[in-house]
């Protein structure tokens, strides 16, 4: 049995590998792993298409310029890395509604998409207000023992546990 074709690896093994990957990221790229600033850059790029020259004047987009940087490339990499992993284990599957959703709400794709969109808006807004997401704060910041990141990680999960229990 090839380990790459296994559907799941032990969460501890995966955690160790993500930890080691973050060492390499610090050492080679000189920066911690993070995902959510890529979404600000993407929103800047999209605004640029529709409003064009206004975007450069906005303060937040001066801080996070709408360019393809290390983190945007990382996001592209995550899509392909996950795709390859799913292909190798035969888990790639085009679907809209997850199993757990079907069990509780039936096969309701429109409802699922509306809730996903609303959830996504909260996630995008909250990540920028908190200054990072589960990767940037929750893994990279906490491992460096940042007070801000530990507070963020607890807030993420408290919020998530509340809304998941409200929904289900």
């Amino acid at each position: 049995m090839n380990i790459f074709s296994l559907t799941r690896w032990s969460p501890y093994l995966v955690g160790i590998f993500i930890g080691v990957l973050s060492w390499l990221s610090f050492l080679i790229s000189k920066r911690p792993i993070g995902v959510s600033t890529a979404f600000v850059r993407l929103s800047g790029m999209i605004e640029k298409i529709f409003i064009n020259n206004e975007v450069e004047k906005k303060e937040y987009y001066k801080k996070y310029e709408p360019i393809v940087d290390w983190e945007v490339m990382l996001v592209i990499g995550v899509i392909f890395g996950s795709f390859v992993s799913a292909l190798l284990s035969g888990n790639f599957e085009i679907k809209i509604v997850p199993e757990l959703w079907i069990v509780n709400f039936g096969n309701t794709p429109i409802f699922r998409l509306i809730i996903s969109l609303i959830g996504g808006i909260f996630v995008g807004f909250g990540a920028r207000m908190a200054g990072g997401c589960t990767s940037g704060h929750g893994i990279s910041g906490t491992m460096q023992l940042a007070v801000t990141s530990w507070v963020a990680l607890f807030s993420f999960f408290i919020g998530g546990i509340i809304s998941a229990h409200l929904l289900f």
Partner: peptide, 16 residues
Amino acid sequence: GGLIFGFGFGLLGYCP
């Protein structure tokens, strides 16, 4: 921000 993020995380079911 963390609580807003978390609230959205529960609805969306994924973090970024």
